[in-house]
Structures are given as C-alpha cells and as structure tokens.
Computed example of a mutant assay.
Amino acid sequence: MRSPGGSAYAVPVFEIGSRARTLPAPPGVVWDSLVAPRRAGTRPWLHLLADEVEPSVLTAEKPGRVTWSSLWPSRPDDRILFGLTAARDGGTLLRFTLLTPGEAPDQSKTGHLRRRLNQLLFADLRHSYGQ
C-alpha cells in the first residue's frame, strides 16, 4: 500500500490530520527550517513540550518534501509529511499530513496532535520569519 506521501508501507497507513497554510518565506528557506530547525543563525521556533521529542528527518527532497519522525514517544510510528509549494506572493504554501500505520488515537489525542503541529508550524515557525 502507498501512503499519501508516496512511500511504501507493508501495513495500511491512516491520515489523522492535515492542514495547509501559507508562510511568508520562500520554499527553500522553509525547507531549510524543517530540515535543520536548530541551525545556528536562525531564530528558534521548535519549542517542544515535556511529552515531545526532537524529530528526525527521515526523507528530504529540496525544495518540496520533508518527512519527520514522530514528535511523540507515545506514538513512535507516526510520521509527519510536509509538502512545500511556491505561493503567488513569494512565500510558501506548507501542508503537513500526520500519518499513522497503527491505530488512530481517540478524538482528544488527535485534536492535541493537530493543535501542536498548527502551533509549531503556523505560529512559531511563522514568527521566526518575523511575522
């Protein structure tokens, strides 16, 4: 079976969240931010909570795709796919898709995971670009 991100899995993969928003920086800059969120010389933006861990970059195809490992030790098999496309205003349309090869979490946990990604990407990362 193929996931929405195109990679092959031996088990079914379920989408448990997806959202797209524009960011003011161009795709190459956003891609760099996702691949190296703690790079020297950039504003910090990946502020993790106590129940979260630093993600690993599993795949990266500049400038349009990045895949992270899970931020949540309680859900180690989840993956976060990022798709980046140029926006008309010179910025980036960034879409995250949260996938799991296992059982989807309950509604409360799903809401928490989605809110955290929204906060990290569309507030914290956005603000790191000065907006």
Rank of each mutant, 00 (worst) to 15 (best):
G91V: 05
G111F: 07
G91P: 06
H127G: 01
A87I: 07
P63H: 11
V53I: 15
S18Y: 13
A50H: 01
L125A: 01
L48I: 03
E15L: 10
A50M: 07
P26K: 03
L23E: 01
F122V: 04
G28C: 01
P76Y: 06
S56V: 04
R116N: 12
L121M: 08
P26I: 05
R126K: 11
A10E: 11
I80C: 08
F14H: 14
R88A: 15
G6T: 04
A10T: 12
V11E: 13
H47L: 15
G41A: 05
D124I: 10
G17D: 04
A40I: 15
P105Y: 00
G91K: 02
S70N: 03
W72D: 03
E15V: 15
F122N: 05
T97Q: 14
P105D: 02
L117H: 14
G64P: 00
S33N: 01
H127L: 15
S7Y: 08
A10Q: 10
F14K: 12
G90H: 05
A60G: 10
G102W: 07
R115S: 13
P26A: 08
G90D: 03
W45A: 05
L113E: 02
V30Y: 01
W45Y: 06
L99D: 02
K109F: 13
V66S: 06
H47S: 13
G17C: 06
A20P: 01
S33V: 03
S33A: 11
M1D: 13
V66E: 03
R126S: 06
F96K: 07
W45L: 02
A40C: 06
L46K: 04
P4H: 09
R39V: 10
G102S: 13
W68F: 06
L121E: 02
L117I: 11
P44M: 10
G5Q: 08
Y129K: 09
W68Y: 07
S69R: 05
R65F: 13
G5A: 12
V30A: 06
D77Y: 12
V57I: 09
P73V: 08
D89W: 05
L81P: 00
H47F: 14
L58T: 09
D78I: 08
L81K: 02
S108M: 14
